[in-house]
Design a binder for these strands. Structure first.
Length: 769
DNA sequence: CAGTGAGCGAGCTTCCGCTTGACTT
């Protein structure tokens, strides 16, 4: 008979703890939740709000193992995380394993160290049913919202769509940001900078850059000002030195790690989580799904030792951080290296880089402030009221800046770091002007979200949890509410006026404005679904909805409210809205927009969301003649497409004539326009317009393609029919068993003479990698 | 990387959180 069984949530944690506890303890993992609502049904009695739980198929084997182990143990310790979800996991274990609730030993530890765990074992408690009920309320509410709302979308918008407390608000953020950008009107202004020459002690000259304390609204004001500068003298009116300090950012949470890895390493949110998972499983870092910035005393002490030995005592400053983000539950520590004395690790390139980032952020958080001296010099003009201001920054003591500096999202916007020194100047000193420049600028509109900045916004609103940020972002892309893509900016003209000597020169330059890469853009479906939900379910779409229900979950957790009563309250308002919306007349009409009529027939032309996405339709379903359909191309949107653009789409496919007795047709497919002849397709080059291309050109394209086809097969082998030497766009390659393999450059010239053995060598070598 | 190319009448689809594999690419 086994003495003790300890159950934790994660297998990596189980392995570590087992070492600390010795042979009287067996440690197993539940791999998260072991029971949930049924997958395909609502699984909730909507009169009593009783959930109907089941053990999912993929967990059955694990549960049997846990059951057997529990039966053969004298004592079972439930050691899931100390938060709402963790408490519920313990309760489900209790129920499923048939443990006696009164005799349950529920324990929690705040850090994975031997003393902490031995201490926890000394203080077992019972299950906190209030906390469990708060979790049940959370789970049931999310199911009700998701499973009652989604079918409304299936009927009113398009099949297989989804809605939920978290994802729908995430889409709303992106849709609204896009509308803000559309509505934004950029205003122009003029920024004036001056360069002065200042003599150094050794007789050489230094340059000082200063900016005018006023921005001009019109070009006339600029010219008037530059004119005044011509005869003006420039005098140093004041020098102010101010000491400043900069403090390090707190250690990483899931959300801040995702943001920094995106900015500094270019990782996607899910990439970051995958790499972090590896580091965690290899014992390199603490748990990677956390909203806590807390560091264990172990880490604080070893950081101090490490920093002192690397850079000296003056660089060390132990700090305790406290979490105050909305809805934080603090079941774990911050994300940090398990051993601070490991300054680097073995692993893949990505693992090394992410580890390095985590190590530096953690170390910096335990380091001294940076001491900076900021110097501000004001320069007065004799002939104008405005003043120039020059700023200098000197780092007196670098402190944490030695290892780490946090990035910000809008860093790339020309606001480069201004840390530079000023040459010595004295009050009353006259400066020699060398050049004054007025540059036209434009006010910056809102920027689109990236994956990482959306995560930050969601966390700020208290929506979603560390374990769901990455999945939420992929869900809204999978449902095609949102697309990651590039938005091309527009070319813009701006003027630069320069005063040099006594002459003012004017130049006009061009720049690209509003160029954005890898940003989240709403699709037509995303916009339509959002507008629909905003119209009928504003309460769910409210940015504060989650915060409001979280407050109620907290009240339940404190034992001051009944969880089923809370759900009843919610449902009695929610359910009638669902019913009402379901029963509105209009089906699949959301987002429909009439563009006008087709000139030839007078039939109505409109855009709508069809079975397979946005389409243009001519005529109505009830008409005598069947309606015609055309899918919206990727570069057009339902909100902005015009009647003419819509009618263009119906000019394809068109038949050009016949060749070798079969028709030649120009069509438009997923990959652009093509020529179809005898069931074979040839892509139309970009230089040809599908609406005007001639039969002769099309025939030429068909012939070219045929010739290419004959040259594609270089060599086949009798002994191995699955293998073939092919000729592709990038030279010869091998095709074997449905896969393609690159041929080394040296073998390109003798591709036609390759032997079977040589080919198989290439294939086996590349398979090894 | 290496070729691709539709129609709008199968029944099904869906939530949020907690955790990792076992599958391919």
């Amino acid at each position: 008979m086994q003495k003790n069984l300890v159950i934790v949530e994660s297998p990596a944690k189980a392995k570590t703890i087992e070492k600390f506890l010795g042979k009287d303890y067996k440690v197993m993992s539940s791999y998260g939740h072991i029971r949930d609502l049924k997958k395909k049904e609502l699984s909730i009695d909507t009169d009593t709000f009783t959930p109907d739980y089941e053990i999912p198929e993929e967990k059955k084997k694990l549960v049997t193992e846990l059951k057997n182990s529990a039966k053969n143990s004298e004592k079972v310790w439930l050691a899931s995380d100390e938060d709402r979800e963790g408490e519920a996991i313990s309760w489900h274990l209790c129920e499923v394993l048939g443990l006696d609730e009164e005799k349950t030993n529920r324990i929690v530890f705040h850090e994975i160290t031997k003393p902490a765990i031995l201490e926890a074992i000394k203080h077992p408690r019972h299950l906190d049913m209030n906390l469990v009920n708060a979790q049940q309320a959370r789970r049931v509410l999310d199911r009700l919202v998701g499973f009652r709302l989604s079918p409304v979308l299936w009927r009113k918008v398009k099949p297989a769509l989804s809605a939920g407390r978290v994802q729908s608000v995430a889409v709303r953020l992106i849709v609204e940001r896009e509308r803000e950008i559309q509505a934004f009107k950029s205003e122009t202004y003029y920024r004036v900078t001056a360069v002065f020459a200042v003599p150094n002690e050794d007789g050489t000259m230094s340059e000082v850059k200063a900016e005018l304390d006023k921005r001009f609204a019109t070009h006339d004001e600029v010219l008037a000002f530059l004119d005044k500068c011509k005869g003006s003298t420039f005098t140093v009116a004041g020098i102010v030195k101010k000491p400043m300090k900069r403090t390090p950012a707190p250690p990483f949470t899931t959300s801040t790690l995702q943001q920094e890895a995106a900015r500094k390493l270019g990782f996607t949110v899910s990439q970051t989580m995958m790499v972090a998972q590896h580091l965690y499983e290899n014992g390199r870092i603490t748990y990677m799904r956390t909203d806590s910035v807390n560091l264990s005393s172990l880490c604080i002490n070893s950081s101090k030792a490490e920093i002192t030995s690397l850079w000296g005592e003056e660089y060390s400053k132990p700090r305790q951080y406290h979490t105050h983000s909305k809805g934080a539950q603090e079941a774990h520590e911050a994300i940090r290296p398990t051993y601070m004395d490991a300054t680097s690790i073995d692993g893949t390139q990505q693992e090394k880089r992410l580890y390095d980032l985590i190590w530096k952020r953690t170390a910096a958080s335990q380091m001294a402030d940076a001491q900076i001296e900021k110097t501000t010099v004001t320069i007065r003009l004799s002939d104008a009221d405005e003043q120039f201001v020059a700023n200098g920054e000197v780092v007196k003591f670098d402190g944490f800046l030695k290892v780490y500096r946090e990035s910000s999202d809008d860093e790339a916007d020309g606001q480069e770091d201004t840390s530079h020194t000023l040459p010595p100047m004295t009050e009353g000193e006259q400066l020699q002007r060398s050049e004054i420049t007025a540059t036209q600028r434009f006010s910056q509109g809102p920027v689109r979200y990236t994956e990482a900045s959306l995560v930050r916004k969601l966390e700020e609103l208290g929506i979603g949890r560390p374990s769901t940020y990455a999945p939420t972002i992929s869900t809204i892309q999978q449902r095609e509410y949102v697309q990651k893509g590039d938005k091309k900016g527009e070319e813009r003209l701006y003027t630069v006026d320069t005063l040099k000597g006594n002459a003012i020169t004017n130049r006009t330059k061009t720049e690209m404005a509003g160029n954005e890469k890898g940003k989240l853009l709403p699709t037509d479906i995303g916009i339509v679904v959002n507008d629909f939900l905003m119209k009928y379910f504003p309460a769910i779409m409210d940015y504060n909805f989650t915060a409001k229900v979280e407050q109620q979950f907290d009240t339940i957790a404190e034992g001051k409210a009944q969880w089923t009563a809370m759900l009843e309250n919610f449902y009695k308002k929610f359910e009638p809205t669902v019913e009402k919306t379901m029963n509105t007349r209009e089906e699949h009409k959301a987002g429909e927009r009439e563009l006008g009529t087709e000139p030839a027939t007078g039939r109505p032309v409109f855009v709508k969301i069809g079975r397979f996405g946005p389409v243009v339709q001519i005529g109505k379903a009830e008409d005598k003649d069947k309606p015609r359909f055309a899918q919206l191309p990727a570069d057009k949107s339902m909100e902005t497409i015009t009647l003419d653009e819509a009618l263009e789409l119906f000019r394809l496919p068109r038949t050009l004539g016949e060749y070798e007795g079969t028709p030649v047709v120009i069509g438009s497919g997923r990959f652009g326009p093509y020529v179809m002849h005898d069931k074979k397709y040839v892509s139309l080059p970009k230089t040809e317009n599908p609406l005007t291309v001639t039969l002769d050109t099309a025939i030429e394209l068909i012939r070219n393609k045929r010739q290419q086809e004959t040259q594609r097969h270089i060599k086949t082998f009798e002994d191995e029919p699955k293998l073939e030497v092919m000729n592709g766009r990038y030279g010869p390659y091998l095709a074997y068993d449905g896969k393609n393999y690159r041929l080394p450059k040296a073998m390109h010239d003798k591709a036609a003479e390759l032997t079977l053995e040589e080919c198989m060598n290439v294939i086996n070598n590349s398979k090894k990698k």
